[in-house]
Write a protein that binds this DNA or RNA. Structure first.
Lengths: 195, 195
DNA sequence: GTAGTTTTTTATCATTTGATAAATTTTCGA
DNA sequence: TCGAAAATTTATCAAATGATAAAAAACTAC
């Protein structure tokens, strides 16, 4: 439906503007490059081993990015409505990704292809600035996460996660939260029991 | 000494060019904003609690970035000659940093102030692109590190570090390497003993 | 609503890492 | 070169987490 489609595009544009305000002209060109796609709960948005060719904005729903290793799964991050994400290494290198993206709920995303965004970044200084700021945000988050993992035990990280994401906790399974914390689901259950 | 000073500036410029080639004009303006500073082994380049006002390029020497917590120390990263670094959260937010930077060897850095770099990023698209690429590199490194910490035990991460940084290992103390791995120095000694 | 599947909990035992202390080795300045 | 300080190793015991299995609870599909 066209109306809904444009609304979704507007979410993406608003997000970009919130990081770095675009001239109307640039926003218009950007809007032309966006497309909106839906995924059902459980569906893979990006499979491990394929190349991530998009930057995504979540209109609604919830996704996890992570990877499978040996027989365990690890989660890099959850992204909910209003967030922008990609699998950065694959996106930048154009190589197959070790990471996957999966919808944890029915999810609607608006995305832009790397080709299109590269072009916009090259043509418009403001789009490059937006991209810098996007990476800056991601970097600061990751820095923080590394520090926390090094410093704190799983029980503390669990408590921190709950405190900082009270909303998300309701929507994430125990197993996925454990995979985010880097411990087994059984260990997290034990931590919750307080032993 | 002026000659040496210009050589040092050139290292910074070469690094920028390697990420995103600058027009001569831009490189010249950039060069005017650089200054070279030396630190003795053990000296703090940035103290925990102050604001990181620079992006640094290491001409020679070795530094660690990290933080003290309770009674333990943790290291985010080592940077040796040829690397560019800053304390990103503090640099971007202009807030006091939870992280410190310390010289592990006598170190010569060439730096640019945030004020000057912000100005160059605003004036020259190519400088913004350089900054994006710098952040992209940092992001991919951090992504990789998070995945590794989640997935692998300290003994494996130790083996990986040695394999990927055979040069650095010679120059880093066991304690600092343990702080990077997120374990105690005693634990690392035990891992090395192979028990 | 019920059966089957998935998720979560509980329990037990093994492994990894931390805390502490002491011995040993290395480094460094006088 | 000596002696003190710092770094590293070794040892012992405690705490945190993993592996496995089984029970309980929650969720789903029909």
């Amino acid at each position: 439906m066209e109306t809904a489609h444009n609304e979704y595009k507007q979410g993406f544009i608003d997000f970009v503007n919130s990081l770095n305000n675009l001239r109307t002209e640039v926003a218009t060109v950007l809007a032309q490059q966006l497309e909106t796609v839906s995924f059902k709960k459980g569906e893979a948005i990006l499979e491990q081993g394929s190349v991530c060719r998009y930057v995504y904005f979540i209109n609604n729903g919830l996704v996890k990015t992570g990877f499978e290793s040996k027989d365990r799964t690890f989660i890099m991050r959850f992204f909910a409505e209003g967030a922008m994400f990609t699998v950065l290494d694959s996106y930048l290198s154009r190589q197959a990704s070790a990471y996957q993206i999966q919808a944890l709920e029915n999810t609607v995303v608006t995305r832009i292809s790397r080709t299109a965004l590269d072009d916009l970044r090259a043509r418009f200084h403001s789009m490059e600035t937006f991209f810098s700021k996007l990476l800056a945000t991601a970097s600061v988050n990751m820095m923080w996460r590394i520090g926390e993992i090094l410093e704190e035990q799983a029980s503390v990280r669990y408590a921190n996660f709950i405190k900082e994401n009270p909303d998300l906790v309701q929507r994430i399974s125990l197993g996925d939260l454990a995979a985010y914390l880097g411990i087994t689901q059984v260990s997290l259950s034990r931590i919750r029991a307080g032993r």
